[in-house]
Amino acid sequence: MNEIKVGCARVSTLEQDLSAHIYELLDGREYSQTEIAELFGVSRATIYREIQRRVAAAH
């Protein structure tokens, strides 16, 4: 699996793809954060952290 260094952490391209898919679902506003978390098998906190990363990157 390919890895890309982001800051001091390594993020796999698969994780990047999943993050992109999470953002697509959030932007579509068809699914709630809870539904997206269940879809990906992660906690709501994980989805919230992804949103916070996106907001921080935008600034």
Results as ranks from 00 to 15, higher is better:
residue 9 A to K: 14
residue 18 L to C: 07
residue 38 E to A: 15
residue 40 F to S: 05
residue 47 I to R: 04
residue 6 V to D: 04
residue 37 A to V: 05
residue 26 L to C: 05
residue 2 N to V: 14
residue 50 E to S: 09
residue 46 T to V: 12
residue 15 E to M: 02
residue 54 R to N: 00
residue 39 L to C: 07
residue 59 H to W: 04
residue 49 R to F: 04
residue 3 E to F: 13
residue 49 R to W: 02
residue 46 T to G: 01
residue 9 A to Q: 13
residue 12 S to K: 05
residue 9 A to I: 13
residue 59 H to I: 08
residue 48 Y to V: 02
residue 55 V to Q: 12
residue 8 C to T: 14
residue 39 L to Y: 00
residue 22 I to H: 04
residue 33 Q to I: 14
residue 25 L to W: 00
residue 38 E to Y: 08
residue 42 V to C: 12
residue 9 A to M: 08
residue 3 E to K: 15
residue 44 R to G: 00
residue 3 E to W: 15
residue 27 D to T: 03
residue 4 I to P: 01
residue 11 V to C: 05
residue 15 E to F: 10
residue 18 L to D: 12
residue 57 A to G: 00
residue 2 N to D: 14
residue 50 E to K: 15
residue 58 A to P: 06
residue 47 I to A: 03
residue 19 S to D: 10
residue 26 L to V: 01
residue 3 E to Q: 15
residue 17 D to E: 12
residue 48 Y to Q: 04
residue 6 V to P: 07
residue 19 S to N: 14
residue 6 V to A: 09
residue 6 V to K: 06
residue 14 L to D: 12
residue 31 Y to C: 08
residue 26 L to D: 02
residue 10 R to L: 11
residue 43 S to Q: 02
residue 5 K to H: 08
residue 31 Y to P: 08
residue 43 S to P: 13
residue 53 R to H: 01
residue 41 G to K: 00
residue 1 M to Q: 10
residue 17 D to V: 13
residue 13 T to M: 11
residue 15 E to Q: 14
residue 40 F to L: 09
residue 12 S to H: 03
residue 16 Q to I: 14
residue 16 Q to V: 13
residue 33 Q to S: 01
residue 38 E to I: 07
residue 56 A to F: 04
residue 11 V to E: 10
residue 57 A to D: 12
residue 39 L to K: 10
residue 32 S to D: 05
residue 25 L to P: 07
residue 26 L to A: 01
residue 3 E to H: 15
residue 11 V to R: 04
residue 20 A to T: 07
residue 55 V to T: 04
residue 48 Y to R: 03
residue 35 E to S: 10
residue 33 Q to H: 08
residue 34 T to P: 09
residue 21 H to V: 12
residue 53 R to G: 00
residue 34 T to F: 06
residue 10 R to F: 13
residue 16 Q to P: 05
residue 26 L to S: 08
residue 59 H to C: 06
residue 50 E to Q: 13
residue 53 R to D: 01
residue 13 T to P: 01
residue 45 A to H: 10
residue 59 H to P: 06
residue 6 V to T: 12
residue 13 T to N: 09
residue 57 A to N: 05
residue 19 S to P: 03
residue 25 L to F: 02
residue 42 V to A: 09
residue 22 I to Q: 01
residue 38 E to M: 12
residue 37 A to D: 03
residue 17 D to L: 14
residue 37 A to N: 00
residue 46 T to L: 01
residue 46 T to C: 00
residue 3 E to M: 14
residue 42 V to W: 02
residue 53 R to C: 01
residue 30 E to N: 04
residue 6 V to Q: 11
residue 1 M to V: 15
residue 51 I to E: 00
residue 48 Y to E: 02
residue 27 D to L: 08
residue 29 R to P: 02
residue 50 E to M: 10
residue 58 A to V: 14
residue 26 L to F: 04
residue 45 A to I: 15
residue 39 L to R: 11
residue 52 Q to G: 00
residue 47 I to N: 02
residue 19 S to K: 15
residue 57 A to P: 05
residue 43 S to I: 05
residue 15 E to A: 14
residue 24 E to M: 09
residue 41 G to W: 02
residue 44 R to F: 06
residue 7 G to S: 11
residue 27 D to Y: 03
residue 37 A to C: 03
